[in-house]
Amino acid sequence: MTEALRIVVVAPDLDVADPGDEHAVRLAGRSRALRIGLLENGFNLVATLPADVFLSERIAQLQPDLIVVDAESDARDALEYVVLATRDARRPIVLFTNDEDTSHVKDAVAAGVCAYVVAGLAPQRIRPILDVALARFRHEQALRAELAGARAELRERKIIERAKGLLMQRQGLSEQEAYAKLRKAAMDKSLRLAELAQRMLDALDLLD
């Protein structure tokens, strides 16, 4: 359920040292509005973190389901920290920004950003944006898993074919006989066929 999502916001500090700094005041107000919008939409906001060198460690500790990045002119810098922090454990990332320089949107999406929203802080927009971002992330993860499975299956087929070829060559077996011998050995040892084939190849490499 969306309400159970644990969200971490990566954003600048809300404290404004100089009340006369209009840019800082505007940025703080915008960031505050985002956090209020998340809470009003029933999301579980577990922490607000700065984009710095400690971000990876903090995200690893908190294990959020989704990361919301709130950035303005430093969107690229903030994203670099977030991408590094999620490199080993991918998570959906949503970026809210007023930065109209969209030249790095392609790089951001390639790095794992599921939604790149410019000037989109209206509270009623937050939930559908996050829902779509999460759905997109899950879809991409499913595709990644499917691709990884296909690659693993191809590797296993190549291992089995190589082992079968060696049996045919060394024992004068037909292709069917070699396959049957591999399959029986795998069943006898309670191993997967590819695992038995790999063990056989490893043993032959030691003997050669």
Rank of each mutant, 00 (worst) to 15 (best):
Q141H: 02
A122M: 14
A150F: 08
A178C: 11
D101W: 10
L121Q: 15
A122N: 09
R151H: 01
L95V: 12
L130P: 01
R136M: 03
E153Q: 01
V132E: 15
Q169N: 10
L134Y: 10
L95R: 06
A110V: 07
A150R: 03
E156V: 01
A133V: 08
L130I: 08
A178T: 08
Q169H: 15
I159T: 04
Y179H: 15
A135Q: 14
R155T: 01
D99G: 02
L167Y: 11
V118I: 15
P123M: 12
T102C: 07
K158C: 06
G112K: 13
K164C: 13
Q176K: 14
G120C: 14
C114H: 14
L166E: 00
C114R: 14
Q169W: 11
M168T: 02
A178F: 12
Y116S: 09
K164Y: 08
I129C: 12
D101I: 05
I129N: 07
I159D: 05
A178K: 12
K158R: 10
A119D: 15
L167W: 13
A142S: 02
F137K: 03
I159A: 08
K106W: 10
L167A: 10
R125V: 05
L166R: 15
E161T: 05
K106C: 07
L154I: 00
K158M: 12
A152W: 05
A152V: 03
R151V: 00
E140V: 02
G112W: 11
M168V: 05
D131V: 09
L134G: 00
E100L: 11
C114A: 15
L143V: 01
R162V: 06
G112M: 14
K158E: 05
R144W: 05
V105S: 03
I126Y: 13
T97C: 08
L147Y: 02
A145R: 03
L167T: 02
R127A: 09
D107S: 12
Q176W: 10
E153A: 04
A163D: 09
R144Q: 00
E161S: 06
E175M: 14
S103P: 04
D131H: 07
D101K: 08
R157A: 03
S103Q: 09
A119I: 13
A148Y: 04
A108D: 10
L147A: 04
A178W: 12
Y116R: 10
E156L: 04
N98Y: 12
A108H: 09
L130F: 09
H139I: 00
K158T: 03
D107G: 11
G172N: 07
K106F: 15
V109Y: 13
H104V: 07
G172M: 12
A152K: 05
K106L: 12
L154Y: 05
T102I: 12
Q169T: 07
G149K: 06
K158I: 04
K158S: 06
A142R: 01
A135W: 11
A111F: 11
